[in-house]
């Protein structure tokens, strides 16, 4: 189930950076114009999809447990939701997990080279999950400008600052996009930790294996006056790491480790790949008793 089914020349060509398109040309990739997907009719269609098949599908596949929503109590206006990333399930999972106040005015930052590879996948991504294309392979002002403009217009943004799905179960270092947009638009960042989706449908999996997952929302982070984007990105990463610790152990242990600066890193040890996998073992928590072996009536 790879998205770009066909490659050039069987599909439309990708556009080299720095090349101006002819006026009126049909666009895809980072230039794909998703404005139509935010018109009322599309939004309504998306609402039906998210609350219907997507919610059912997520429930059947990932049986999510959602924690920490109370931390968003009192948060007003648009926000940037920044989550770790394991699976294609993450976006649908979060779409169904983010509280109502933001859920239906939310865009998802999606890889331009992947979800917007051709017009069909672009349209599907834009319509179904409200994706907007973000260039992840190179610095590109336009996608950032577009996202910022949307936030200013009151849209919230769901972004995976790791820039792609985890390949081995460990996280990747955060990129600065979320922090940058937060600073630029003065909106808070809500750190989110997702656990379990990698087991259900990780990168490279052929088919999903239904299991359980857990989404933990953290307290909103506001940039401190004069804070640099890189520093802020570090704080966001640390917040997600603390949430990961909280999900794996409990809140109090996580707080104590965070206070001592001993939260387990999200990116894992700098070791050979097998030892990294080995080290992952004890962080693969199976929530005891959360799913019963026998159906309850």
């Amino acid at each position: 189930m790879r998205f770009p089914l066909l490659k050039f020349p069987l599909s439309a060509p990708t556009r080299p950076a720095g090349v101006e398109l002819l006026p009126g040309a049909r666009r895809s990739g980072a230039d794909y114009d998703t404005e139509w997907a935010r018109r009322p009719l599309s939004r309504y269609a998306r609402l039906l999809m998210v609350e219907g098949p997507i919610r059912l599908g997520v429930h059947a596949l990932a049986a999510p447990e959602r924690a920490g929503l109370d931390r968003l109590e009192g948060l007003q206006g648009p926000a940037i939701f920044a989550a770790n990333h394991h699976s294609h399930l993450d976006a649908p999972l979060l779409l169904t997990s983010v509280p109502n106040r933001w859920r239906h005015r939310l865009v998802v930052a999606a890889a331009a080279d992947y979800f917007f590879a051709n017009r069909l996948t672009s349209a599907a991504s834009a319509l179904a999950i409200g994706a907007i294309p973000i260039e992840r392979n190179r610095i590109e002002r336009r996608s950032a400008d577009r996202a910022a403009a949307l936030i200013v217009r009151g849209w919230s943004l769901l972004i995976f600052p790791e820039g792609g799905r985890s390949t081995d179960g460990w996280g990747q270092g955060h990129r600065g996009g979320a922090a940058y947009l937060s600073l630029r638009c003065s909106v808070p960042v809500v750190p989110i930790h997702i656990e379990g989706t990698g087991r259900i449908f990780g990168k490279g999996d052929k088919r999903p294996r239904p299991g359980s997952s857990r989404v933990t929302f953290g307290a909103p982070l506001h940039p401190v006056a004069g804070e640099h984007a890189t520093r802020f990105a570090g704080r966001i990463e640390a917040a997600v790491a603390t949430l990961a610790d909280e999900a794996a152990t409990d809140w109090w242990s996580a707080r104590r480790r965070a206070a001592k600066g001993e939260s387990p890193s999200l990116t894992g040890p700098e070791l050979a790949s097998w030892r990294r996998s080995w080290a992952l073992g004890d962080r693969r928590r199976r929530a005891p008793g959360r799913r019963t072996a026998w159906p309850r009536f």
Binding site: A67, G68, D70, E246, D250, W251, W252, S253
Partner: peptide, 11 residues
């Protein structure tokens, strides 16, 4: 006390 505190201390 909230789920977080409960899960951390009650068990």
């Amino acid at each position: 006390v909230g789920d977080r505190v409960y899960d951390a201390f009650a068990p």
